[in-house]
């Protein structure tokens, strides 16, 4: 629990909207750039992984932001 509270306190300091945008940017890049590129190379699995990384990054970053700003 100490570690968890440490992490939360750290996040309050440094998890800001800029970081969220950064992660969302990476996620979008994964979904739209990498996934398509992989697909055109014929690597379906990689394309899928890329897409999922992107989606989960976006979701998690927004979720964490809500968590940090409004809940804890």
């Amino acid at each position: 629990m100490v570690i968890l509270s440490d992490i939360f306190s750290w996040m309050k300091y440094s998890y800001n909207i800029g970081f969220v945008f950064f992660i969302i940017g990476v996620g979008l890049g994964s979904i739209f750039l990498d996934a398509n590129q992989m697909k055109s190379k014929g690597l379906t699995r990689e394309s899928l992984v890329s897409k999922w990384i992107g989606i989960s990054y976006i979701v998690i970053s927004i979720f964490l932001y809500i968590l940090v700003e409004f809940i804890i």
Binding site: G25, L33, N36, S40
Partner: peptide, 20 residues
């Protein structure tokens, strides 16, 4: 032959990211 258009698309997006 198809890689040209794709390449361009990718590059364009990268440029966009840079601008952002």
């Amino acid at each position: 032959s198809y890689s040209s258009s794709l390449h361009m698309k990718v590059k364009r997006r990268l440029t966009l990211l840079l601008v952002i």
